[in-house]
Amino acid sequence: MRYVEEFRDPKAAKALLSAIGRVADQIGAKKARPVHIMEVCGGHTHAIFRYGLDKLVHEGIEFIHGPGCPVCVLPMSRVDDCVTIAEREGVIFTTFGDAMRVPGTRKSLLQAKADGADIRMVYSPLDALELARRNPEREVVFFGLGFETTTPSTALSIQQAAREVLTNFSVFCNHITVPEPIRALLDDPHMVLDGFVGPGHVSMVIGVHAYDFIARDYGKPIVVAGFEPIDLLQSVLMVLEQIRDGRAEVENQYARVVPEHGNPVSLAAIADVYERRPRFAWRGLGEIDASGLRIREKYLAFDAEEKFGIGYAASPDDEPEGCACSAVMTGRIKPTACPQFGLGCKPETPLGALMVSSEGACAAYWTYGGARVLPRVTPEVAAQ
């Protein structure tokens, strides 16, 4: 199959691993400390563990798992708002399936559904639009969640609802952006990073120049990558070559899919429908400036926050006691060192942000055998 088999070729992988080893030796990886490379996207994290790349690369390379899972970083207070809306009489609340189990302070959407709320899983906001057409006597709310990858489809659905004057349709907007949390992580004094493997799907929408600040302002290389093993190995090699050569650039390994300037239709829809929130809270990371989107005034009729009187209120870091998601996302510990990993926090009963979604780092460790026993840290150390 084109664009799949050639990116899983064992001979090509072996050649890339040899090249990675040579360049890692040239830059002295592991002599003082490992080279820390963050894969921003949760899909990359799972690919790394699925194919065992963490075990195959040079011992002087350490992957740091970024906050690239929008379900994982959703704060509990916003889940509480979802439940509040869903439990209103006459409401059909629609959501992607991976958001159903995200715990709030009272309950998850799955628990609210079990308690009688009309909550339905959909594959796209277009499904929610169709429900609104078929149920004019009901209020249909779509839970708009995700990075720039899913933001355009929600924007286009709002535009369509406006054209049809579907007054019983609205969106509870929790769309977030990728560049801002990267900047926040780079500003974190605890963070030690040497380069990035950039997200592929997000970059299909926003292009590669959104990451220029990483190289320009912080002197770190970033390579936008695909999701097959050859993609990731080639991207790691490109990052290492930049470090060896003393360069800091934005490179595009995933050029077969990612255009330099992104998708103009998607970007136009985003610009038309959304504006930046001054601040938005990320579970495990706290509030980050201008990292969330809200619906513009011209489309307020389709804003569930406006329709149901749910104002955005900044919430403190509300991780359950003992969870160390923030420490994992900033590279201070590995998931298996969290006090709750595999004990109170498992995929079927997630507590922490990174175990909730199938793309979370903790879920990757659990699923693909990355659960090598590491010393557990105390909650006090995890919070430092």
Rank of each mutant, 00 (worst) to 15 (best):
P221I: 05
V250L: 03
D245M: 11
L351G: 01
I158N: 02
D54L: 11
V328C: 06
F169E: 10
V79L: 04
M1P: 12
N252K: 01
A128V: 08
I92P: 00
R50H: 15
G42A: 02
G226M: 04
P103Y: 00
A371R: 09
G144V: 02
K298D: 15
L285K: 05
P221K: 04
A383M: 10
R50D: 14
V208S: 12
P350G: 00
I37Y: 10
E297F: 13
G195C: 06
E251W: 13
A162H: 01
Y51S: 00
A128Y: 08
C72I: 07
H65I: 09
V178H: 07
L351M: 05
A364E: 03
V373Y: 07
G90F: 06
Y254E: 12
I61N: 04
E251K: 14
T154V: 15
K55T: 15
Y218H: 10
R138C: 02
R2H: 14
S124V: 15
L156A: 12
A215E: 00
R78Y: 08
R279I: 13
I176A: 05
D245H: 11
Q253V: 05
E297Q: 11
L232F: 10
P125S: 05
R22D: 15
L56A: 15
G97K: 01
G198M: 07
H46R: 11
P67R: 04
V373C: 04
K346P: 05
H65F: 15
R22K: 15
G146W: 01
F147Y: 12
R8W: 10
G146D: 04
D188I: 05
L16W: 04
T95Q: 05
H190S: 12
E319D: 15
A301N: 13
R247S: 14
F143L: 15
A99C: 09
P125K: 02
D318K: 06
P189M: 03
W282L: 07
G60I: 10
A304N: 11
D81C: 09
N135K: 00
L285A: 08
M329L: 10
S124A: 15
V165Y: 10
T95G: 06
L300S: 15
P199T: 12
R163M: 10
V224F: 01
A132E: 06
A361K: 02
A24R: 07
P199R: 08
F147K: 08
C325F: 05
R50C: 11
D188Y: 03
D80W: 00
D118N: 15
H175W: 11
V197Y: 11
R50I: 12
P70N: 00
V23F: 08
V224R: 00
R8P: 09
L166H: 07
Y3D: 13
I288S: 01
A361V: 14
L110Q: 14
G68N: 04
R2M: 13
K307C: 09
V356R: 00
